[in-house]
Simulated scan of single mutants.
Amino acid sequence: MVRTALTAMDLERGRRLGAALREARGERSMAQVAAAAGLSTETVRKIETGRIPTPAFFTVAALAGALGISLDVLARACATGDSSADSDRHHALLHAGK
């Protein structure tokens, strides 16, 4: 089976996911979050830097759980076409309850 090439939109969505996860991680180390999610630090690093722009659903779910954020919030943070007002709202949602 041949994997289709990622589109520019896929790559941008991956960058947004990485940025949202980095922001939600805050002061916690990458190693702490990786351990809490049951992932390797290298996997978290690759997702946060956009080198894995389309991680598996269960990987994202594990990270969201370790960070205490909902998948809905992550999905909105990764949506294309965000305005700066949406960005501010996503920042507040990512840090709600911390």
Rank of each mutant, 00 (worst) to 15 (best):
E48I: 02
T49L: 12
A79I: 03
D86W: 02
L67G: 11
E23W: 03
D72S: 15
R45D: 07
T4K: 14
M1G: 15
A20K: 08
A24L: 08
L67D: 06
I52L: 11
S83K: 04
E27Q: 14
D88N: 02
S83L: 02
A75D: 13
L21K: 08
G38D: 07
V60K: 04
L6R: 12
R16M: 03
I52C: 01
T54W: 00
K98T: 13
A20C: 09
R13G: 03
A37P: 08
F57I: 14
T4F: 04
A92D: 14
D72N: 14
A66E: 07
H90W: 07
D10F: 01
S70F: 01
L17I: 11
G38F: 06
L93P: 00
R45Y: 10
I52N: 13
R3Y: 01
T59S: 10
E27T: 14
V2W: 00
V60C: 04
A62I: 05
D10C: 04
R51P: 00
L71C: 14
A8P: 06
S84F: 09
T41Y: 00
V73I: 15
D72V: 13
L74S: 07
A37N: 05
V44P: 01
V2H: 10
T7P: 07
A66F: 10
S40I: 01
V33D: 06
A20Y: 09
R25P: 08
I69N: 04
S87Y: 00
A36N: 06
A79T: 10
